[in-house]
């Protein structure tokens, strides 16, 4: 699971009001190189919850992202490279996503988060 995906996931348990962002519990992180695409990053920037991305990348052991970001930074190649790496190249391979409100853990195995709910959670 890439951090772009993490940035799009929230806890879906019935009754949970603040299900975002899910806290990441790391067992194993892998890095996979992908082609750099500035247009894609510029496109995605407005859709990303920045703080959630910063915290998520920190919990995955990457702390190069600035705490705050604004669109003017998209002109900086250095910034784009870091954004690219955090958003697309870090994968949570094994671990869990934890609901910020209830503490319920959604397991991540082989890079695939399991968001299926138990009957009493729907």
């Amino acid at each position: 699971m890439r951090l772009l995906t993490h940035n799009m996931l929230s806890s879906n348990i019935k009754g949970v009001a603040n299900g975002f962002p899910l806290r990441i519990e790391v067992e194993k992180v892998v890095e996979k190189q992908v082609d750099f695409n500035a247009d894609f990053l510029k496109n995605m920037f407005a859709k990303i919850e920045w703080k959630a991305l910063v915290d998520a990348s920190r919990s995955m052991g990457y702390s190069e992202l600035p705490g705050d970001a604004n669109p003017s930074m998209l002109d900086s190649d250095d910034f784009l490279q870091k954004f690219h790496h955090a958003l697309l190249e870090l994968h949570l391979e094994e671990g869990a996503l934890v609901c910020p409100e209830t503490g319920r853990k959604f397991p991540v195995n082989k890079g695939i988060p399991n968001m299926l709910l138990h009957e009493d959670e729907v």
Binding site: M1, L9, S11, N12
Partner: peptide, 30 residues
Amino acid sequence: VKVTRETLDAHGVDAELITTDIASGLARRL
């Protein structure tokens, strides 16, 4: 989703996979 991962890998392409009911957990942010 596990089988899908293998199929993607075998073709050298990539997608993010999520085990969920339709798009539960994704619909709010996406």
